[in-house]
Computed example of a mutant assay.
Amino acid sequence: MANEFQVVGTHIGGMQSALLEIRVWKFEEPETALMVSLGAPFGKSLEMQKSFWEYIRSYMNNGPYFDEHGNHSESDAFVQSQLAVKPNMSGWFRDTLAGIKKTRAENGGRKYLGGTDVVMVVGTLLLNPCFRIQELTYSVAKRRSRNLWPKVVTDRLKADGPTSRLVDLESHQKLAE
C-alpha cells in the first residue's frame, strides 16, 4: 500500500510525503498480522516509493540474481558489486589515517595536513566507539535471529529459490487436516 499525504506546519509550510507499507501474516498463524513500513527514510515522494517497490518486486519475481536493469541473471556479479560498496563504519578512523599517511608520503612530509584531515581524524575518533557498538549489536542480533524461522521458511532462502509458495503449502496443510 502506498499513500501520499501532505504534512503542514508553522515552520515548514507544506511538505509532500509518501508511505510504502506491506501487510504480512505469520506463517501458519493467519490471525497474526503486521503492517511493515518498507519506505526509506529519505525520498518520501510517491515516485520514489513506487521505484523502491518495483525493486522489491523484481527481487521477489526474478530471484536473488538480477542485472542492473532488474532482469533475471544467472550470475550474481551485479549483486556482488553492489554488496562490495558497503562501508565499514568502524574502519573510517583507520582509513582516514591511511589517507593522511599517503598524502604525507606524496608531499614529502611538508604541509600535508589540511583542515579537513583534522576534522575527519577528530570526528572519526569520537564516533569510533559508536560504530563499534553498532557493529557488535548487529552481529549479535544476526546470530540470534538465525534459528528463529521454521525449516520450511529457511529452505526457501537458498540461492536456487523456492519451487512452491508458502501460501500454497499452508493451504495444502489445511486441506490435509
Rank of each mutant, 00 (worst) to 15 (best):
M1G: 01
M1Y: 04
F5H: 05
F5I: 00
G9D: 01
T10G: 05
T10Y: 02
I12G: 04
I12S: 10
G13F: 02
S17F: 01
A18N: 03
R23Y: 03
E28R: 15
E29Q: 15
E29Y: 13
P30M: 08
E31K: 13
T32A: 13
T32G: 00
A33G: 00
A33F: 13
L34G: 03
L34H: 15
V36A: 09
S37Q: 11
G39D: 01
P41D: 03
G43T: 09
G43E: 07
G43L: 08
K44T: 09
K44Q: 11
E47C: 08
E47H: 13
E47M: 13
Q49D: 11
F52S: 12
W53T: 08
W53P: 00
Y55P: 00
Y55K: 13
I56W: 13
M60T: 14
G63H: 11
Y65D: 08
G70Q: 11
G70P: 12
N71L: 14
N71Q: 15
S73T: 11
S73F: 10
S75D: 11
S75V: 05
F78I: 04
F78C: 05
Q82K: 15
L83T: 11
A84V: 04
K86F: 12
M89A: 15
S90A: 15
S90W: 07
G91D: 13
G91W: 05
W92N: 15
R94N: 10
D95M: 14
T96K: 03
G99T: 08
I100E: 03
K101E: 07
T103Y: 00
T103Q: 09
R104I: 06
A105S: 11
E106M: 13
G108W: 07
K111Y: 10
Y112V: 06
G114C: 03
G114S: 14
G114L: 12
G115K: 12
D117F: 03
V118Y: 08
V119C: 01
V122E: 08
L125M: 09
L126N: 01
C130R: 02
I133K: 09
I133F: 07
T137A: 12
T137E: 01
Y138L: 09
V140F: 11
R143N: 06
R144L: 12
N147A: 14
L148F: 01
W149G: 00
W149I: 00
K151E: 09
K151D: 09
D155Y: 01
R156I: 02
R156N: 04
K158W: 01
D160F: 02
D160A: 08
T163V: 10
S164G: 06
S164R: 12
L166T: 02
V167H: 10
D168T: 13
D168W: 11
L169F: 03
L169A: 08
E170A: 05
L175F: 08
E177V: 13
